[in-house]
Structure formats: C-alpha cells, structure tokens
C-alpha cells in the first residue's frame, strides 16, 4: 500500500447563488495515491463533519466512473483537472505530489449559476436539448432496425459525438463560456444519421438559438473546450454546426 501524503487545498465556498464566495484553505494529510480526487474530498469532508465547525463541502457526483457527467470541478484552473480525457471523478491523486497546493473552483458561467460551494445549475444544457436535440419518433412506430443500413464510418463518427456526457467542462474552460462544443456534439451526432436528417435544419437553428438565449458566449475557435473534454470531442463539431446553420438559413423558410 502506498504511503500517504499531504496536499494543501484552496476550495471555493459559497453559501448560495446570491451570496459572495471565497477560497478557503484546508490541509489534508491522509492522501493516498490510489484515491480518486472525489474520494480525497470525501475524506476531507469526513474530517470537517467530525470537527463540526463548518458545513461539509458540497460538490456534484453520481456514477464516479466518468459517464454520468455530474462531477464538475475546476482544478488548478483546468476543468476536470490536469489529466487528458478524464473526468474529475476519474482523476486520481497519483497525479499530484506531496506538498502540492490545489485550487478547486466551480464551473463558472452566467448560464451555470452556483447553487452551493462547487455545485452549479446546468439545466441550460437540458433546455438546449429540449430545443431540438432529438429525433421525433413515436414509441412503437419505428421500422425494423436493419431497414436502414448505415455506413459503419458514419455510425462510428456519430457515436464519437454521441459520447458527450453533458458535463459542461467545455463551457467552464472556454474563455468565452461558449456552449458550442456541447451543442455541436449533439448536432453532429444526430445530423449525420439518416434518422436525424429530416429535422436537421430545424434542429440546428433551434438549438443554436437556445444556446444564445441561455446567455452562453460566442465561440472564438480557441479549442480549449476540446482540450478539457473528457470524451475528447473535436471542435470539428462546431464547424459542422456552422455549416448546417448556414445551409438552414440559406434554405430559407422550409423547415
């Protein structure tokens, strides 16, 4: 079993959406390299609860295996921390060393208001999907699954984009707080499949408009979003979104 080591933490504490927040210092000396980052925070919370002086630190998580998209910390200025293609919950303490100072902040964007401490409200993403991120098919009305063959490479690429877990790291890391990668990924998934084709234009325009309405920033092609995306989704999705948007606009009134 590995030796334990010590880390210094600066963690954002904020009581509620309208309250001011600040970074608070903690020192944890029972860190084990096999712990996940969230387990490290669990251990810290247990200490805080045992001491009883302040409330434990709130942060979001559920699956703890990198798939639900709940976890969302900005660690030392990087959304989901230093490791590529990794969610906060899959980041392990072996990526840090004894004596490190680690700054932990929530995802910051106007469209993601802080609920408490490190927990933010990402329902804007749901509303973007609601605007058109689906194929309108009634339950039970589908033809046989093999009736439409799909080129394997098309299906595979659609899958690559469909792996987005909706975590919001792209927004958190984007200097403009743009939701283009998230929106682009869903569009790139559905728009390239024959099932998604009939609603392609309508979907693209509606989702882009919703993204504006939620108060996300524009995309300046920084590609920082791609760098932090735990699923490595390429910003080609964003370019594709623009292409479809232009086509839809030029196509005029037809839906």
């Amino acid at each position: 079993m590995a030796d334990t080591f010590t880390v210094h933490l600066k963690i954002w504490r904020q009581d509620g959406p309208d309250q001011p927040g600040k970074l608070v210092d903690y020192t944890l000396d029972k860190v084990n390299e096999h712990m996940s980052f969230l387990e490290m925070l669990d251990v810290l919370n247990e200490e805080i609860v045992a001491e009883g002086k302040e409330e434990p630190i709130e942060f979001d998580y559920d699956c703890r295996e990198g798939i639900c998209g709940s976890c969302n910390l900005v660690i030392n200025g990087q959304a989901h921390g230093p490791k590529d293609m990794t969610c906060t919950c899959q980041l392990h303490m072996r990526n840090f060393s004894d004596g490190d100072t680690i700054v932990i902040e929530p995802f910051r964007a106007k469209a993601f208001p802080v609920i408490k401490d490190l927990v933010v409200d990402r329902s804007a993403f749901d509303r973007i999907i609601e605007a058109g991120g689906y194929v309108s098919v009634k339950t039970g009305s589908a033809p046989d699954a093999n009736s439409i063959p799909i080129d394997k490479t098309v299906a595979d690429t659609a899958f690559d984009y469909a792996t987005c877990i909706g975590c919001g790291a792209c927004v958190a890391a984007c200097p403009n707080s743009s939701a283009s990668l998230f929106t682009g990924a869903k569009l790139a998934h559905l728009n390239r499949l024959p099932q998604g084709e009939p609603e392609r234009k309508k979907r693209t325009v509606a989702m882009v408009e919703q993204m504006d309405e939620e108060g996300f920033g524009d995309c300046s092609n920084y590609a920082e979003c791609e760098a932090v995306c735990p699923k490595g989704i390429s910003i080609s999705a964003i370019a594709e979104m623009r292409r479809n948007y232009v086509k839809a606009t030029l196509a005029g009134t037809e839906a």
Binding site: V137, A145, P149, A155, H189
Partner: peptide, 22 residues
C-alpha cells in the same frame, strides 16, 4: 425486438458491421 427498432429510430448509434447492418 421492438426496443431495438425504437432505439435505432431515435438515432442510438449501435455498433455496425461494414455492410452497414447492426
């Protein structure tokens, strides 16, 4: 069987063979 039909119609990208079938 209906579930698979439904999911595919929704755009669930199941693995496919080179021939384009599931």
């Amino acid at each position: 069987n209906e579930i698979i039909d439904q999911a595919v119609a929704q755009g669930v990208p199941f693995a496919r063979e080179y021939g384009g079938l599931l």
